[in-house]
Design a protein around this nucleic acid. Structure first.
Length: 487
RNA sequence: GGCCCCAUCGUCUAGCCCGGUCUAGGACAUGGCCCUCUCAAGGCCAAGACGCGGGUUCGAAUCCCGCUGGGGCUACCA
């Protein structure tokens, strides 16, 4: 049997990291088993769905490197892969249940149902649909139709035995049918509800394994009833714990950035993100933290997934990304340039038109900044002075190194010596500074620290000689001069 | 409220299924030291956890029960 997994987002906004995480495990499993991974768009709630959202979700997955064998854009033998295009299928299946007596028309209005619910709540009882429309006489039905009430279609639930869900992560979970009522399958406008469309699609698309978030666990018995009504068998299910925010609540916008796109924009690398995802709720093997995607595919097992909810640890993600970034600087600097370039452009430090010389310069800056970069956007905070002459001086840095007239005198001399040289690179900067220190009989530090502040506005940063080499003669002379005259 | 899920360092986790090898291992973060022109990075070291209470057993982080705590769901949303 070919393993078929799927990810079925509702396109009502940007892809959330929690959803990307769940999608990743479905994808890993399909790849591990040499199966098929399906992307299905669940847009039956048209009021919340947008095409823009579909485009951004697809774009985010492409960026992550998660690909699908069947989906709305690539097609496949079980299409269409967008639920709005499958409406006829749902109606047809609802009709089958109507014909077999497993479902019935319900003429209750939303207001009437809300009243039932409120009454149940007021008396402290759990709400269940009363079943008023279960056995309507022909005359009663006629009356409702004459009133112009559009009906929903409900599942007739008569089950009395517990529903037992064998979950691949959680083990056996039992649900008492007493809590279940006659669920609505089709809205009064003729569209399908999630728990109905989802089941039909998973069955028709021959999905074998469903790995999804724990918030769907309580939907599972409801879906089981639909499978039963059709006499279909339910795929294997595995419920993932929920990713938590720092306050131990379900990760949401309240916790800051939760869209995958936000991480992309900040200059995180997809491979680092996937590595981080893998470590949330899973641990491929003891004593190792870094895994290539291929290793993850090779090692993935659903049974190894954890039950407890992990907290999204941004610090660890940052550490992992830093490792990947450092590695990339050595192996594929052009990719790092691409990542940093978009951050620089977003910050307005580089214009939209990028010349080859700009790329070369950015690459030199990256090499000098080196492991000070954790994410692409760090080039803006750690290296803005490479791209702007107006980067501001930190007051504390000025107080510490540029208040002393003697220090300014040293800077003036350094400026003159740099100005006298043909070209400034790392080695000549090194020679000039050391020679000046020797000539003045002072320690190198006494030159290095004030110079760094004069050049960058701060006390921390890359090695001074590398820094000077990248800035070049003209800028160094200009900035030293500015420090001497302005302070 | 009802139903369901979960529970090892601050965080991610290994160990749990198949009790002893656990004075509970690793990683991130934190603190210290080293390296060093600063900051990073790197190296070394330190501190830091089996939620509580009952069982079962010669022996429990590991098995059972209860409690507590946290979370999710409870729509003509997904």
């Amino acid at each position: 049997m070919t393993v078929r997994t799927r990810f079925a987002p509702s396109p009502s906004g940007q892809l959330h990291v929690g959803n990307a995480w769940a999608a990743f495990f479905n994808w890993l499993y399909a790849r591990h088993e040499a199966g098929r991974f399906v992307l299905r768009i669940e847009d039956t709630d048209q009021s919340r769905s947008t095409d823009e959202s579909i485009r951004s979700i697809i774009s985010d997955f492409r960026w992550l490197g998660i690909d699908w064998d069947e989906g709305p854009d690539v097609g496949g033998p079980f299409g269409p892969y967008r639920q709005t295009e499958r409406a006829a299928l749902y109606r047809e299946h609802a009709q089958r249940l109507l014909d077999s007596g497993r479902a019935y028309y319900c003429y209750c209005t939303p207001d009437e149902l809300a009243a039932e619910r409120a009454a149940a709540q007021a008396s402290g009882r759990p709400y269940r649909y009363s079943g008023r429309c279960r056995n309507l006489s022909a005359a009663e039905r006629e009356a409702f139709i004459r009133e112009g009430r559009p009906p929903t279609i409900r599942l007739r639930v008569d089950r009395t035995e517990p529903i037992v869900v064998p979950d691949l992560i959680l083990g056996t979970v039992r649900f008492e049918p007493a809590a279940l009522d006659d669920a609505i399958l089709m809205r009064s406008d003729g569209s399908a509800l999630y728990n109905f469309a989802n089941v039909i699609d998973d069955h028709l698309m021959e999905i074998t394994h469903i790995i999804r978030a724990n918030e769907h666990l309580s939907n599972t018995p409801k879906q089981q009833l639909v499978y039963d009504a059709f006499e279909w068998s339910m795929p294997y299910v595995a419920h993932l714990p929920l990713i938590l925010g720092p306050d131990r609540r379900k990760l949401s916008k309240r916790h800051g950035e939760t869209s995958l796109d936000a991480y992309r924009r900040q200059g995180y690398l997809p491979e680092a993100l996937l590595n981080f995802f893998a470590l949330l709720g899973w641990h491929p093997e003891e004593g190792r933290e870094i895994y290539s995607v291929n290793e993850l595919i090779a090692k993935f097992r659903i049974e190894d997934l954890g039950k407890a909810s992990p907290m999204f640890d941004a610090a660890k993600l940052s550490w992992i990304n830093g490792l990947y970034l450092r590695e990339l600087i050595a192996t594929d600097p052009q990719r790092v340039v691409d990542v940093c370039l978009s951050s620089l452009q977003r910050a307005g430090l580089i214009g939209p038109a990028v010349a080859e010389a700009d790329r070369t310069y950015v690459q030199r800056v990256i090499e000098v900044l080196g492991d000070r970069l954790k994410v692409g956007a760090d080039i803006v905070t750690a290296g803005d002075f490479f791209f702007s002459d107006t980067a501001t001086y930190e007051p504390a840095a000025v107080d510490q190194y540029l208040r002393d007239p003697a220090a300014l005198e040293v800077l003036a001399r350094l400026r003159d010596r740099v100005a006298a040289v043909d070209e400034l690179d790392r080695d000549s900067a090194d020679r000039i500074v050391r020679q000046l220190a020797a000539d003045l009989g002072i320690h190198g530090r006494a030159i290095i620290h004030p110079t760094r502040v004069a050049l960058t506005g701060r006390t921390t940063g890359p090695g001074l000689f590398e820094l000077m080499g990248v800035l070049g003669k003209a800028r160094v002379v200009q900035r030293l001069g500015r420090a001497v005259t302005a302070l």
